[in-house]
Design a protein around this nucleic acid. Structure first.
Lengths: 207, 207
DNA sequence: GTCTATACGCTGATAGAC
DNA sequence: GTCTATCAGCGTATAGAC
């Protein structure tokens, strides 16, 4: 077991390598479907050596989850109360879509866990995600009250943004099978901008 | 092994019971996460007895998938070329949402498989889903050409319907955690109708 | 048709040499 | 810190009695 005080450079590097490998394997197979052997091989280590850095498979997984959740929620945190409401939300949608394109493994990692009832993530959902959702959905409701946005259910609005954008990461195989050679990420940004612009842009039609 | 000709009533009933139990277990844990023991217990049979009706765990899974896919695609097949375009699509959205409410296990079964790269479903995607998508997206494009619907990317439109509606089944745990006591299915229908009506209703604004 | 008992591979984790 | 060797338990599947 690594000593508690001041991990060496090699320890830090190996832990990082393991977590990177774990992300690759867990995101593709889920917790139960992944094996320590696969992770060790992907990390270029032997299985016992890997378990020298982490006490168990479960420990790797939970550390991975908690480490990623913070940055995963950054795009939502960046929603700026002082910005232009419509543009803020449209920018958030695009940020989320880019994350699906650039970090699909993170998205699938969470998706895998949540479809199966989030047995190792329920606490994070309540403690980290819920307060953030409350804060931002309240902000959006304020914007609607002020007439800056067309009125909708603000929580469903955020769910919609999540599901539409993460779909391109989580269901990537299906999307690419159905679109053949066209890259989904070429046309998705326009489509999603149109959806949310039409939904949220305040009415200018009299009557 | 059951004889090939004319399965008895008890055989039919047991196979149906097993598939029902398998749906329950596979949808909650995925293929790898599910065990034959769990399925047998859920079906009220011993493990060897279960394997008398199906040759393997894999066989149960694939039969379950192929059996469910057909009815799963029914709502899309029901999209009527002769109906009113906007109302047809809005009705499709509501049918899909009802399926997420009434058959969440089926949705999660497919979701589990697809997030992990659809190793046992790729053929079905190409052979069954793709032709249907091509047919219906072409129909939608026709409607747009005729000015009956606002123009959007018809495939992304269908992806959007799938992701938004199935989200309430696949991410049920997250949604319910974040909405606490409010039932998502009380407010989701309105929200989704508004989204697609605003997106697709032909413009009446001059200029 | 249904059971008990069991074979056997895979997987998570540990022991102990170096 | 890293390795080889190995253990214990689980999970799929089968054998064979009834």
């Amino acid at each position: 077991m690594p000593t508690d005080r001041s991990p060496t450079r090699i320890q830090k590097k190996n832990r990082a390598t393991i977590l990177e490998a774990a992300l690759e394997v867990f995101s593709n197979h889920g917790f139960r479907g992944a094996t320590v052997d696969q992770i060790a091989k992907a990390a270029g280590l032997s299985k016992p050596n890997l378990l020298y850095y982490f006490p168990s498979k479960e420990a790797i997984f939970t550390e991975l989850l908690s480490g990623l959740l913070d940055t995963w929620l950054d795009p939502l945190r960046a929603l700026d109360p002082d910005g232009d409401p419509l543009e803020e939300i449209l920018a958030y949608v695009q940020r989320k879509l880019q994350m699906s394109r650039d970090f699909p493994r993170e998205s699938r990692l969470f998706a895998n866990e949540i479809v199966q009832g989030a047995p190792r993530m329920l606490d994070s959902l309540s403690k980290d995600l819920k307060p953030l959702l409350e804060e931002k959905s309240a902000l959006i409701t304020q914007w609607m009250d002020a007439g800056k946005l067309n009125r909708t259910h603000s929580k469903h609005l955020l769910f919609s943004i999540w599901s539409l954008t993460q779909h391109y990461a989580d269901f990537d195989v299906q999307v690419r099978t159905l679109m053949e050679d066209e890259d989904p990420f070429d046309s998705a940004p326009q489509h999603l901008e149109l959806m949310f612009r039409r939904l949220l842009a305040p009415d200018h039609i009299a009557g």
